[in-house]
């Protein structure tokens, strides 16, 4: 059965001015949808069609000949995760369990923010910055293109930030760090990240 995309979890204009409605419209309506359609086409009529999205990604990740399918499937997952990593009125220093974990792992929220933005800025080309749980600690990582921590079962992704140029070029042009600062200060959905602490990413 063909996969579908969940609707965006907010209106297209809900993240403005930090991420514009125009950007969300292309990003969700064209890029995300494009990955979905390419993935569905590739698995149609094959045994891969019966797998969950997560299992599909983990299965094809092991086969270099299925790189294109991996790219599309991982981008379907990465983008759904990215929409949920943001919310209107989000960002800033979190409280609660996650706030404590961030202090334990990074020393301070400011240090986390610095590392997260540096990860995004130094991801040369296209990719993502991530906050992941690695054992009892939280760490910041970055991945190129469609790569995702989902393929490393020792890590639990908590939130991601898309740094492909399509994520910010209409709003910030070459100024990737401005987008990243706006993301950290005004968009991060910490409730989503906190729930992910307990989630099991599995089929």
């Amino acid at each position: 059965m063909a996969h579908t995309l969940p609707p965006l979890p907010y209106d297209e204009n809900a993240l403005a001015p930090y991420v514009s409605a125009q950007t969300l419209s292309f990003h969700y309506g064209k890029h995300h949808t494009g990955y979905l359609n390419n993935m569905n086409k590739a698995i149609a009529g094959t045994e891969l069609e019966s797998l969950s999205l997560v299992d599909l990604i983990r299965t094809v990740a092991k086969n270099v000949e299925q790189k294109t399918l991996f790219n599309n499937a991982a981008q379907v997952w990465n983008h759904t995760f990215y929409w949920n990593s943001m919310r209107p009125g989000g960002g800033g220093e979190p409280g609660g369990t996650l706030g404590e974990l961030i202090k334990d792992s990074f020393g301070s929220y400011d240090e986390f923010k610095k590392q997260f933005i540096t990860a995004g800025t130094t991801q040369f080309g296209s990719g993502y910055a991530w906050l992941v749980k690695d054992g009892e600690k939280l760490v910041v990582t970055k991945t190129p293109n469609a790569e995702t921590p989902l393929t490393d079962e020792s890590k639990v992704p908590l939130l991601n930030m898309d740094v492909w140029e399509h994520a910010y070029y209409l709003d910030y042009q070459n100024l990737r760090p401005d987008y990243e600062n706006a993301f950290a200060d005004n968009l991060i959905n910490w409730e989503f990240a906190e729930k992910n602490l307990e989630r099991v990413f599995a089929g």
């Binding site: 059965m1 969940p6 409730e191 089929g203």
Partner: peptide
């Protein structure tokens, strides 16, 4: 948020 998570979970789960 719970509803959102549900949707995400649905996307992640069996269909996959």
């Amino acid at each position: 948020l719970a509803a959102i998570l549900c949707l995400v979970a649905a996307a992640l789960l069996p269909t996959a």
